[in-house]
Design a binder for these strands. Sequence first.
RNA 1: GGAGAGGUGGCCGAGCUGGUUGAAGGCGCUCGCCUGCUAAGCGAGUGUGGGGGUUAUACCUCACCGAGGGUUCGAAUCCCUCCCUCUCCGCCA
Length: 426
Amino acid sequence: MLDLRRIREEPDLIREAVRAKHVDVSVERILALDQEVRKAAFEIDQLRAEKNKLSGMLAKSRGQAADAPQMRERVRGINAAIKQIEDELKPPKEELHDLLLWLPNVPHVSVPVGGGPGENVVDRTWGEKPEFSFDPAPHWDLGSALSLLDQERAAKLAGSNFSLYSGHGALLVRGLINFMLDLHTREHGYTEYWPPFLATRQAMVGTGQLPKLEDDMYVCVSPELFLIPTGEVPLTNIFRGEILRSDQLPLRLVAFTSCFRREAGAYGKDTRGLNRVHQFGKVELVRIAEPERSYDELESLLADAEEVLQLLELPYRVLSLCTGDLSFAAAKCYDLEVWAAGQERWLEVSSCSNFEDFQARRTGIRYRPSSGVKPCFLHTINGSGLALPRVIAALLENNQTAEGTVAIPEALRPYLGGRAFLTGTT
RNA sequence: GGAGAGGUGGCCGAGCUGGUUGAAGGCGCUCGCCUGCUAAGCGAGUGUGGGGGUUAUACCUCACCGAGGGUUCGAAUCCCUCCCUCUCCGCCA
């Protein structure tokens, strides 16, 4: 949600953002509706003022004044006039509200201009791609060979593009979750949460998944609840409607959640193995910070996510997303992509974004800069730290050995019963 | 699922036999006084959002007491629907 006053004051900037993000919303229409609604609201306010005055006079005389009947009649007339304006006002008001929810966030000035994924900028690369004396296999072959993954049987349970881990594969999932949560809570100062994995429509609108991405969501019909597509939804909504104390900022929240995405339209494209699944585990990092600090917080959160990859000894690169690839709610975003040697591709494992006050406006998360001052909207920052399936894909592919086993990076071994290799025997 | 209680300002908590109550009181916070320092004490101030107005203040005005409807000249207060919390009973992983 953008500030209506900002839309009035810098409509060109908003128009530019709408174009850059490939959204079809008319800023002209918004401005016209805004004017119409304000004009009518002003009339209603004036009618109410007169009504209140008359009511006050009736109250003072306990309704015994000589002209009480005429006053009552006058108020009845005012009520009818108000009702009429309100009825006329309803459709434009709803349309305005709806259009505002469809208006994307404005990219930060530091975001590279570009039309789409092809114009994202590689900021830097970390680590060396592994070299092999043999032809490295993709993770789906390794997963089957070592009995870690069973794609075929997963389909029996929930259809295509679900995953079923077994044996040491399941242990690997559990170990990675604990490894990541321990790192972020012990070393990076995050408070751990275990939230619901379903969310209300209001919560989903709050973080910006709705209304735009409704087709990508799984929904329970009665009562209506959405399966969360990311832990960002529950974590950010925890403080919905609250005025936070500035001495508790910035907040750092972390949670493991399952994430559910229909990935409508993605069939047949990059969907083999763990590359794109409907349900996956993710450790999510969220920060809620004062506006002037939010870009520092973004860099710091990005470093927290990067450290996971460094400890796992996985080569990765950091991308600055260009304006055309920026998501609906983001003002700036870095993607972390990990190298997967068996597929010879980079796989996205984290998006770290600053939403500025976009989500905070939708959810009503504010703070008081100092006592006696009006509350201000906070900034929200979040990123994966990390999403599991592609990390697992990279671990298997990059660490495979000539013997057909998979080496476990040092940092992860304590979480896998001290094992140095996955061998396929449990 | 059944029965009962309740949802009020940053927090706690009155009001709920309808009328100048945006809301007593307390806590917290801000400013001032007092005091070797601190604490205590004393005084004043302190909800949110919108509109109008001003160079900017001042000022004027509307809405908001879980959400949405209704009754009424007038609703935090009465009626209806829904949501949520708590207690007891039942059921259940």
